[in-house]
Design a protein around this nucleic acid. Structure first.
Lengths: 112, 112
DNA sequence: CAAACCAATAAGTGACAACTTATATATTAC
DNA sequence: GTAATATATAAGTTGTCACTTATTGGTTTG
């Protein structure tokens, strides 16, 4: 393992490796949601959802706040920063850098 | 799991989840390398390296060409595209989009 | 051809990860 | 206070994953 493999990086990559966890993260993209909402949306048990949320939270990707009986989770956008940084690390392969960035801009513009 | 969770996405995220595999990928960033070189560089067995390379290859992240007795692997930059796309998908959280992109540009400029 | 070298595959093992059910902890409602 | 709701934690099970050693497949050299 290279020294550049930070703990944050490890946690983020591992957290996002699981499809269910990515699905939960993507669902939270659409807005805040309580655990029970997520449990209803996906076909896994409530404890499974809570465990996934705990993993995502530990990776800094989501955050939860208690409100009454419910706990509402939401995406923490800054949590993706290490992932963006990791990708940026391979700028050497973006030979036509500007073109690639413009392409990224385009991707950012269209889409849902 | 959301329908947007493509097979390519799954493979890439899973491939990059392992620190050893990320380390190998990062090593290949510095240039082409034969399996024996990677085996020498890391403290895992040759079969382990080959298995990691097979996983990375299957995910479209690296490519290998045989030259005599050696097999030289190199990064396939386009392989990261699905990952970039996935991140771009969360543009909604880049509130100050231009700023973020400029920041990415900066990151692309300095660093090793 | 034989011996050496390099890489991939086979087979087995130990650890961990994702899930389950059951239970505990908060919080609200009656 | 008791019951009901919402979430977290405990404990156990199963499958998968990363690694190992042993072997096979290719390629070069002597």
């Amino acid at each position: 393992m290279l020294p550049s493999a930070t703990a944050a990086e490890n946690k983020i990559f591992q957290a996002l490796a699981d499809p269910s966890r990515r699905a939960i993260f993507e669902a939270l993209t659409l807005g805040e949601a309580a655990v029970k909402d997520l449990t209803a949306r996906f076909s896994i048990s409530q404890p499974a959802v809570s465990q996934h949320l705990a993993t995502l939270r530990d990776a800094g990707l989501v955050d939860g706040r208690r409100e009454g009986r419910c706990v509402y989770y939401r995406v923490q956008p800054e949590g993706l920063a290490p992932l963006v940084d990791w990708i940026a690390h391979f700028r050497a392969f973006w030979t036509d850098r500007l073109g690639r960035l413009e392409q990224l801009l385009d991707t950012l513009d269209d889409a849902p």
